[in-house]
Write a protein that binds this DNA or RNA. Structure first.
Lengths: 209, 209
DNA sequence: GTCTATATCTCGATAGAC
DNA sequence: GTCTATCGAGATATAGAC
């Protein structure tokens, strides 16, 4: 649950329930596709309460997105710090990132829908001129590995995009991918490990000096 | 333009204009987010004509998706057939796939939105039991390369997912990626080549026997 | 704080004149 | 084939009782 995040502790149970339900519905259907009625139903309250706690649909959406972005930064840092060597960190990142998304597929939906709309909210949240750090931790991790000779020279932004895409696409495209391999949709431990192993060896050999 | 596709030749100019406008709007906003009024405006006709030519919004959507899927299969086959060796085919595929999406970003939006909704239409189009071939050409290409020793043993479905994701994510995430490298959004020749080069060398070294 | 009831608006679809 | 006008469903948002 994303409600484990520190930024949730100062909220009432009702607010937590609303934010959690909103993440599910916004992730499923995007900003315009989500229905305030569905969010209210899922949170176990009525529609008018949504407007009482969060002025409008837009405000609620922004609140949800802010927390998802913060949570992403934290989990990235944790995975990197949990290991010492580059290969171990690479595997830990792949494993943590994939499992996080599998346990909350709506986060990917939220991210994708936001981008399809030009990411007006996310761009403001990530704007360096407004003090946002962005995924700098991940970029530095790659640049440092290049500088220290652990991997061959590689553009950290390009690899970051590839890294994110390889995991995210697995979730996004599942409805279609499962038409030619139904086991994937189950999302069992075997499938997770197979995906992580594939990406790890592809990237490990692809980055080796 | 996707209207170059053979399946368009038997259509009137009005029908072509509608399908082209519908692809743009459905790709932008997805099935539920797209507005029939916007499609009509873009096609240069009025709303009633949409229902005259294509019974309903659902029928129009299905018609658009069918043509996109067919077009995808064709362009994949063309790229593979254009080269002899595996490395050359890999680069040709990356280049063709990325450029095709850059010239018509709405296709990615359509694909993503369809998947976020569980891909009800695409799953029917890809169902092997109904005679669909699916992306078999791409999977066989990888399996054959493994069998002939051109690349190390690798799960073709896993690599297919990674391959598609690495290109598609570049388009999807552009609004956010461009916050920490604005040049990417321009989509100039330099950026295309940089992306293809990065993916080619990552995959080439990652797959080498 | 919580609810019901309703105002207001937008969108898909259709009727019917030309 | 093409258009204008409009219906009816369903959405956001608010008013007002409790």
């Amino acid at each position: 649950m994303l409600t484990d995040h520190p930024s949730y502790t100062c909220l009432s149970d009702t607010e937590k329930a609303i934010l959690d339900a909103a993440l599910t519905e916004f992730g499923r259907a995007g900003h315009s596709g989500a229905r305030m009625q569905d969010i209210a139903d899922r949170a176990g309250i009525n529609k008018a309460m949504l407007h009482y706690y969060f002025r409008s649909k837009d405000r609620l959406y922004e609140e949800v997105l802010t927390r998802v972005v913060e949570s992403f930064m934290v989990s990235i840092a944790e995975a990197i710090d949990s290991e010492e060597t580059f290969p171990a960190q690479l595997r830990a990142l792949l494993d943590a990132y994939l499992r996080a998304h599998l346990s909350r597929p709506e986060v990917v939906g939220l991210w994708v829908n936001e981008n399809l709309n030009g990411a007006p909210v996310a761009r403001r949240l990530l704007d360096p001129e407004h003090g946002a750090r962005g995924p700098r931790r991940l970029l530095c991790w790659i640049d440092d590995a290049v500088r220290d000779g652990h991997i061959r020279p590689v553009d950290s932004v390009q690899f970051l995009i590839t890294f994110l895409g390889s995991v995210v696409i697995y979730l996004i495209g599942m409805p279609m991918f499962s038409t030619f391999r139904p086991e994937l949709a189950a999302g069992g431990e075997d499938e997770i490990r197979a995906r992580v192993d594939h990406l790890y060896s592809l990237f490990y050999h692809g980055l080796k000096p």
